[in-house]
Design a protein around this nucleic acid. Structure first.
Lengths: 226, 226
DNA sequence: ACAAAAGTGTTCGATATACACCCATGT
DNA sequence: ACATGGGTGTATATCGAACACTTTTGT
């Protein structure tokens, strides 16, 4: 038997999005060791030999956030020879979404863990900035073609919360009336009957997501052709 | 130093599309060894320690097809624990496109290599059927939002060839007049002035792709929101 | 009364879709 | 002459985009 070819170390990394006070944030961890000691990096770790990628991600994220069932979706493999000075370490990157109402361990944990606003990220280790950028592109697509928004918002939310989420992800302002009309047509949400009151202004209606599947939104992908 | 964690074998596999006689085909290789001996599989192989994923794919594909610069795009990582009975072998899958006018070695090579029509694939080894399915989804998206079609068609082609390619990829019929109008609006191609004559009917105009970049097509992705 | 966010419809332009006939050629 | 695929335009429906005022609350 020849020496095993293609032998490498395989890790998973996660771009965990959540929304807090209508701000889209990403989970970062300050590195304690070389390389990139003191820099922030995406949470992640090596994959055990008998462990699925998704299990590995969820295991790592449970350790960091205390949240058990996190929505994850693979973004791709990052394997540039030079990406890690320690040697050939490839990373399978995942997009992960957490709703902020699950009391997150990370928020109150040691200072080495933080939720950084997407639009104000510190310098990052490895190729993690690229991974975040790619994840955001995927998220932009998914939010427009599925009901993935439910994975990141709390159980109950206002239409302003929802619009803010879309704006944060798509990185542009949306028109309130057009947005609400669209959401209505899609039957994405339903009223809870409750109201949310805060500040010196009219209270907002609270909504929750419908159970309806939204794969059908992908039919709108007839972008180019009849 | 502890024993290396996350140690695995890493391979690349390619879903190579080409179009021959207006039929969309995929490159398959008959396996000579266990497991799945005698079954067809995607071309691929292990990644060398100092080799980029893309290099590895292109190296393998050059060996199989004799074509040097093949368009490739990563689809994702496939790493189910049970996917390969020999052990934990993960595969980074790539979509690859070859225009059939480059005289393909594969077509004339040993019987163990064949171009199989997408709509008539034999049983495949490993999770390769799934990889093909996922690749086709990516291709469906790319063909509608970029000028990727140029990577698979020959230098010169008729509008019927082009439409046929779109139909093959999108797996549905398109309206000829609407298709041509769209292609015109997008300024995707230009006339060569030449004609292509074949069979007992009116000769067709030959076209070639414009050099224009088509990233801008992605702006049409405002599927959901204003 | 005022400030601040919630809520609500209509018009216009652009794009997608449906649809049928003549043309140039080889046999 | 006929069979075969190549080539062309218009009318309608749908969707996206732009746009401003009233409502409800706390202070």
């Amino acid at each position: 038997m020849e020496k095993l070819r293609g032998q490498m170390q395989v890790a998973v990394d996660a771009v965990v999005f959540t929304v807090e006070n209508d701000v889209l944030k990403i989970l970062l961890i300050e590195r304690r060791n070389q390389p990139f000691q003191g820099r922030f990096a995406l949470p992640g770790g090596f994959v055990n030999p008998d462990e699925e990628f998704e299990q590995a991600v969820k295991r790592e994220l449970f350790e960091e956030t205390g949240v058990k069932d996190i929505f994850v979706k693979q973004i791709g493999a990052y394997g540039k020879v030079s990406r890690d000075p320690r040697g050939r370490i490839i990373s399978i990157a995942f997009l992960a979404l957490i709703s902020h109402d699950q009391n997150l361990k990370a928020a109150t944990d040691a200072a080495k863990v933080k939720w950084a606003p997407l639009n104000d990220l510190p310098p990052l280790a490895f190729d993690h900035r690229q991974i975040i950028s790619d994840s955001l592109e995927v998220l932009k697509f998914e939010i427009q073609t599925t009901n993935i928004a439910r994975e990141i918002l709390p159980e109950e939310f206002t239409l302003s919360n929802l619009q803010s989420l879309y704006e944060n992800i798509l990185q542009r302002k949306l028109d309130k009336r057009n947005f609400r009309k669209k959401i209505r047509e899609l039957e994405l949400v339903k009223e809870t009957g409750k109201q949310f009151m805060e500040g010196a202004h009219r209270p907002a209606m609270l909504y929750e997501f419908r159970d309806k599947e939204y794969e059908n939104l992908k039919e709108r992908m007839h972008v180019l052709l009849s």
